[in-house]
Write a protein that binds this DNA or RNA. Structure first.
Length: 507
RNA sequence: GGGCCCGUGGGUUAGCUUGGCCAAUACUCGAGCGUUUGGGACGCUUGGACUCCGGUUCAAAUCCGGACGGGCCCA
């Protein structure tokens, strides 16, 4: 195999994000894209470790919030789709008949991922009577079992989750972590006695998202998606987006409130305290490997990745600097240092490859190891360790207090990343140029800047939202969960509103 | 959904326009030996490629078609 890193001169500038990103995910050995199926990369150990550490954050949050982990089969028989289709039809009918129309937006073509599923139609020599599909998400599979498990109000809330791979037949351009055909997926599914309890679950989900994003030093936009962009069968969808370096937003998580629509379709009901049957109210919460994609995009620079310490597969790399005749002494000192750090809980690697130290520095910089310790005869003499932070800055550290100092260094890197990311977000958010109507035709005053997220006060209708989307060539992310504290005039109607809406080009 | 470009050792690439001299260029990389090691070391030895299928032709890396894969732009 090739070495872990390529020549620095070979790294595209991060400004050229469309070149930088695909280069870096391979050069940093996160994935190998040479597997001969579009959109299905091979996870390499370094990338998988990072993903597993991100998953670890999620598992910890699930544990804390008393969700339980399940593992559902990958294959789903076709006939189960019928229930889902019936649900969609039902919702459509409700909409057509004017029942809560704005709450029941359904696009039949999108419903059930019909166009995006992989099918298994043969097994051995036989054609299957009932074809099976690979889960694009697991509502159908899980809600087939929920009625068997939920009988009494005492069984609720049911809080489940699983981390599995899901499959979607993407025809558009694929991108590592961002748009793939086999998705490393997290999905939490809950069932509750009523709408209010389900709503409380949504609040908890948002708190969980907040914790996970904070651990990865990722600032996010949290917004309620417009009705036309609501998940099929959902009452509403709240999405979490990260602003990538090119200003495009990447949806990294979503939370759906289903009310009792799915429960009706799948007959998920419980007996309440009065002995009466009630439908459950449900929520889902999903995330994926896009989280890693966001980390790569948000924190990386012209020299490669920068891993936030909490998810860095290697937090500290130790480079022994050898001198002729003193190899053994230096190596021994390095491994002793490594052992001490490991005992204190750090993820540590000693790079004892036979090459020049400079070469190693470049290698680990591409991979984004946050802290590098150099250890040579000079340092050992002075009882110190020479530290270089991936975010910039070099300092000798007192060897005798190395554990404390290493913690401090990583904390400093973390806060530097948070600060940079916040700065990035701030710089990428702008007010929208003024919209002008003339004979029923809308135009924009000036240019729509590229690579930017726009924030507007908006109080218009769906139709007016569509006008804005068309006029500006942007996508409505939706209503910020944190609305304006003071009313502002809507860009279309001029009415005062606290509704704070984001528009962006999206992935 | 529409358009454009690309596919040569593990990686980057020359060759393709004008088919033969290509049993293929350079750098990098892998293996081995030696000297080295505080920001990309050097010497010697050695290893490794025309995406696949079909067509045109005496002859295809080169021309044509398709598949697969990669990339970009626009809706």
């Amino acid at each position: 195999m090739s070495g872990p890193a390529k020549a620095k001169r070979g790294i595209p500038q991060k400004e050229d994000f469309n070149e930088w990103y695909p280069f870096i995910v391979e050069a940093a050995e996160l994935v190998d894209k040479r597997y001969p199926i579009k959109g299905m990369d091979v996870w390499r150990p370094y990338g998988w470790k990072a993903m597993r550490l991100i998953d670890g954050l999620t598992h910890a949050e699930m544990e804390r919030s008393e969700h339980e982990e399940y593992r559902f089969p990958l294959l789903i028989p076709e006939n189960l789709l019928e229930k889902e289709n019936r649900l969609v039809a039902l919702l459509k009918k409700a909409r057509d008949e004017g029942v809560e129309p704005e709450e029941l937006r359904i696009d039949e073509d999108e419903a059930g991922f019909k166009k995006e599923v992989y099918w298994v139609k043969h097994a051995g020599e036989n054609e299957l009577d009932i074809p099976m599909f690979l889960r694009p998400t697991s509502e159908t599979a899980m809600y087939t079992m929920f009625p068997l498990w939920i009988r009494s109000h005492a069984d609720l809330p049911l809080k489940t989750y699983q981390m599995v791979n899901t499959f979607r037949y993407e025809t558009k351009q694929t991108r590592s972590f961002i748009r793939v055909r086999e998705i490393h997926f997290f999905e939490a599914h809950t069932a509750h006695i009523d709408e209010a309890c389900a709503s409380r679950q949504i609040d908890e989900d948002l708190e969980i998202v907040g914790n996970i994003m904070a651990a990865m030093c990722l600032p996010v936009l949290i917004s309620k998606r417009p009705v036309w962009d609501t998940f099929p069968g959902a009452w509403y969808t709240i999405a979490i987006d990260v602003v990538m370096p090119n200003g495009r937003t990447l949806q990294v998580a979503s939370v759906h409130h289903y009310r009792d629509q799915w429960a009706k379709a799948f007959d998920i009901k419980y007996e309440d305290e009065n002995g009466e049957f009630q439908n459950c109210h449900q929520t889902t919460y999903g995330m994926s490997e896009r989280l890693l994609g966001a980390v790569v995009g948000m924190h990386g620079d012209d020299s490669g990745l920068i891993m936030p310490p909490k998810i860095a597969p290697i937090q500290i790399v130790i480079i022994p600097v050898l001198k002729k005749g003193q190899e053994e002494m230096v190596n021994e000192s390095a491994s002793q240092l490594a052992n001490e750090l490991r005992a204190a809980g750090f993820r540590v690697k000693v790079d004892s490859r036979d090459m020049r130290p400079g070469q190693k520095y470049y290698d680990w910089e591409i991979k984004g190891v946050p802290l590098r310790f150099e250890l040579g005869p000079r340092d050992i003499d002075k009882n110190s360790v020479f530290a270089a932070r991936r975010t910039g800055g070099k300092t000798p550290l007192d060897r005798s207090e190395i554990i404390t100092l290493a913690h401090a260094q990583l904390a400093e890197i973390e806060s530097e990343l948070i600060q940079r990311a916040a700065q990035h977000m701030k710089g990428k958010t702008q007010p929208l140029p003024e919209l002008i109507e003339c004979d029923g035709k809308w135009t924009v005053e000036g240019e729509i800047a590229d690579g930017v997220v726009f924030e507007i006060a908006f109080d218009g209708s769906d139709a007016e939202a569509e006008i804005i989307e068309r006029t500006c060539g942007l996508t409505f992310l939706g209503d910020a969960v944190e609305a304006y504290s003071e009313p502002k005039p809507c860009v279309i109607t001029g009415n005062n509103t606290k509704r704070r809406v984001w528009l962006a080009r999206t992935y």
